[in-house]
Computed example of a mutant assay.
Amino acid sequence: MALDLGGGFTLRQARDDDQDALAMICLKTGDAGKDASAREDDPILIGAIYALPYQAIEPLFSFMIEHPDHGACGYVLGAPNTQRFYSVIEETWYKALRTKVADPGPDMRQWRGSDWARRLIHHPRYVFPKSLHAYPAHAHIDLLPAAQGKGLGTTALRFLMAQFATRRIEGMHLGVDPKNTGATRFYERLGFERLVADDLPAGSLYMVTKL
Rank of each mutant, 00 (worst) to 15 (best):
K150V: 08
D115N: 10
Q83D: 13
A102S: 14
P136C: 11
K100P: 01
V127F: 05
Y135F: 14
P136L: 12
P145H: 08
W93S: 06
Q163Y: 02
A102N: 09
G105Q: 10
K95Y: 12
C73G: 01
I89G: 00
T99L: 07
T155W: 01
R118A: 08
A79N: 10
Y94L: 12
W93C: 05
G105N: 11
Q83E: 12
A117E: 12
Q110W: 04
G78S: 07
R112T: 15
R158E: 11
L143H: 00
D142P: 00
V101N: 09
W93G: 02
D69H: 05
R84H: 12
D69I: 04
R118L: 07
G71F: 09
E170G: 05
K150A: 05
Y75V: 03
G153A: 03
I141D: 01
A117D: 10
V76G: 00
H123Y: 15
N81W: 10
D142F: 00
G71D: 12
T166L: 04
P129L: 12
A156V: 03
A134P: 00
A134I: 04
V101I: 14
P136K: 04
L77I: 09
V88P: 02
F128T: 14
Q148E: 14
W116Q: 11
L160Q: 03
D69M: 04
H140W: 05
T154Q: 08
E170N: 07
G171W: 04
P80K: 06
V127L: 07
A162C: 02
T99K: 06
G78Q: 03
A72Q: 05
N81T: 11
V101W: 08
L120P: 01
L77P: 00
A79W: 05
R158P: 00
A147C: 01
K130N: 10
K95D: 15
P145Y: 08
G113K: 06
W93Q: 06
Q83T: 12
N81E: 14
Y135C: 03
A139E: 05
A79K: 03
T154F: 05
H133V: 13
R158M: 05
I141S: 00
S114T: 13
R125A: 13
F128G: 09
S114F: 09
H133K: 15
W116C: 11
L144P: 00
